[in-house]
């Protein structure tokens, strides 16, 4: 346990305001151990994206953010970028650059020479995400879902210790959603990353995340193992819906939403 905490992501209590409006109100995060996936859940406007941006250092927050004994919150942007990769909800724009190029741009800060092992690294990430055949296609020729995968490749290729993803599945079809979650599982485990993902689909969270944090009105409703967080009582409070958790025939938890609470 001690070892796990050493490289864990911890934050808070965090407070974030836009003008007078308080978006996050004393939110405590973690410790989230390396090699684990945490699903960030909550209704629209509950503060999920803001929390992710605060963790990424893109939104100023009151409160400490640390990775093990590294005080992430106090690092300058280029320094912090070595530890954290963040992928926003918006898709990468359709620009005139090849997929592989954009991954290389994301990987290197001086980007003066691309040695062959960098290209090999970028290519492996692309092929893990099923994008190998699109490596030399221009982003402005790709579909929205393909661009989302390219954006994910850009974040993964940086080999971060903290991976922060804002709805990485929003433009993907069913099969790709699970493929991406599987790639994220593998990469998270093999690299010992702390991965935090904003998810809308509670079913994906139940099946693929280790932990969950449920937010409502800028506060934590519940945090812990997914099965303890995604409960009818919590969902009623966070989403205002009546829901049941049933065990499906293969023994896995399944979420059924009956209607508005």
């Amino acid at each position: 346990m001690r070892e796990a905490i050493q490289d864990s992501l911890m934050a808070g209590p965090l407070t974030v305001s836009y003008g007078r409006r308080r978006i996050l109100d004393g939110v405590t995060v973690g410790p989230l151990p390396p090699g684990s996936i945490t699903a960030l859940l909550g209704a629209n406007g509950s503060g999920k994206s803001t929390l992710l941006r605060a963790l990424a250092g893109l939104k100023a927050a009151d409160g400490a953010i640390s990775l093990g004994d590294i005080a992430l919150g106090t690092l300058a942007p280029p320094e912090r970028a070595r530890y954290c990769a963040y992928m926003p909800q918006t898709l990468p724009p359709p620009i005139r650059m090849q997929t592989l190029e954009t991954v290389l741009v994301a990987m290197r800060t001086d980007h003066s020479s691309h040695r062959s092992n960098h290209i090999a690294h970028a290519l492996r990430i692309l092929s893990d995400l099923g994008l190998a055949s699109l490596a030399h296609r221009y982003l402005d020729e790709l579909s929205g879902g393909q661009r989302q995968l390219a954006g994910l490749a850009q974040a993964l290729a940086r080999s971060p210790r903290v991976l922060l993803l804002d709805e990485p599945l929003s433009a993907l079809d069913l099969r790709h959603q699970f493929e991406v979650m599987d790639v994220l599982r593998d990469e998270t485990a093999s690299r010992g990353m702390v991965t935090v993902i904003v998810l809308h689909d509670l079913g994906v969270a139940l099946r693929r995340a280790d932990q969950a944090m449920l937010l409502a009105n800028g506060q934590v409703v519940s945090a812990g193992p997914v099965s303890e967080v995604v409960t009818p009582e919590h969902l009623r409070r966070a989403f205002g819906v009546e829901a049941r958790i049933e065990i499906s025939s293969d023994g896995r938890p399944m979420l059924l939403v009956d209607g508005v609470a």
Partner: peptide
């Protein structure tokens, strides 16, 4: 529930390795 999420992840976590592009 506290906001404490210390429970161990489902699969055993691999030893944290912090390598850069490799």
């Amino acid at each position: 529930d506290s906001a404490d999420v210390t429970s161990a992840p489902r699969p055993p976590a691999a030893p944290p390795e912090t390598s850069f592009p490799d």
